[in-house]
């Protein structure tokens, strides 16, 4: 019995190690290259390790500008999604609105049926008709529309788990409905809003297709499109710069996921990260 257990332990550990290495392999290059001033696509220990690549990124106006564009688009979307989704989710969770069920069902269907790549054409045409092609606002609005349904479902579940007694006791204590919402629901809902906001941020931050299709001018492109054009077009890519830039660009996403995972634990919120 004990012997068998030991053997199975060893087998499991070896499998785990192999799988771990297999998953890590495509990323290992990223551990070294950013710190290597002469980095190329091969795996080489940087000697000496240096932060020069990062300094070069920060000296590059286009690269920094793209990061700032990413920030602007992500924050704009998060703000829009967080406020409108909270309000709408509250209405979904708490009103006697007739046809609420139908709204939910239709929303769920639409949000999963209308995928980015299938809806690219009409979204492009709508944005074009609105005269918003090549504006950051267009990117923000389109992202917000696409992310809203999921954000609403995440928040609706959070609101549904808040005891109604919280609002009711505020109402009885003399608060108006709006006041009860602001004083009691919003603060209690903060974890939900944080999670939805982080999720939305990460989606926009990493989003490629929407800005790729909607934007034209270099100075409005977010980092995702900028990086792609760095390695796909410009003949021979400037590898050390690109490596450092990719790491910088990934850090916020990793940090946010780490934070949410640590603070709230990883859970599934309506098939998050689609």
């Amino acid at each position: 019995m004990n012997r068998r257990k030991l053997v199975s332990r060893i087998v499991f550990s070896v499998c785990a190690a192999l799988l771990g290495v297999a998953f890590a392999l495509p990323l290992i290059w990223f551990v070294f290259a950013p710190f290597n001033a002469q980095a190329d696509l091969d795996l080489a220990l940087p000697k000496p390790p240096t932060l020069a690549n990062f300094a070069r990124v920060f000296a590059n106006g286009a690269a920094v500008g793209a990061l700032l564009n990413s920030l602007l688009q992500a924050f704009g979307t998060v703000l829009l999604v967080a406020t409108t989704a909270t309000l709408a989710a509250y209405a979904l969770a708490r009103t006697t609105l007739r046809g609420k069920r139908v709204i939910e069902y239709v929303l769920l269907l639409f949000s999963s049926v209308v995928s980015g790549s299938a809806a690219m054409v009409p979204i492009f045409l709508i944005v074009n008709a609105l005269g918003l092609i090549d504006t950051q606002l267009a990117v923000i609005l389109v992202f917000a529309g696409g992310l809203l349904p999921t954000a609403m479902f995440i928040l609706r579940d959070f609101i549904a788990s808040i005891p109604r007694g919280y609002e009711e006791s505020a109402l009885v204590a003399g608060a108006s409905q709006w006041r009860a919402f602001v004083d009691v629901v919003v603060p209690v809902l903060r974890p939900g809003v944080t999670i939805a906001a982080v999720w939305a941020f990460v989606q926009v931050w990493g989003g490629f297709l929407i800005p790729f299709v909607l934007l034209r001018s270099e100075q409005r492109m977010p980092a995702s499109v900028e990086i792609y054009s760095f390695y796909s077009q410009a003949g021979t890519p400037i590898v050390p710069l690109l490596a450092a830039y990719s790491v910088l660009y990934s850090l916020p996403v990793i940090a946010l996921y780490w934070y949410v995972n640590r603070k709230y634990g990883f859970r599934f919120f309506g098939g998050i990260k689609s």
């Binding site: 005891p163 007694g165 009711e168 006791s169 004083d183 603060p187 209690v188």
Partner: peptide, 11 residues
């Protein structure tokens, strides 16, 4: 009013 589950605001 006093509620069965007290409904104290956690924050």
């Amino acid at each position: 009013m006093v509620f069965q589950d007290y409904a104290l605001y956690p924050h």
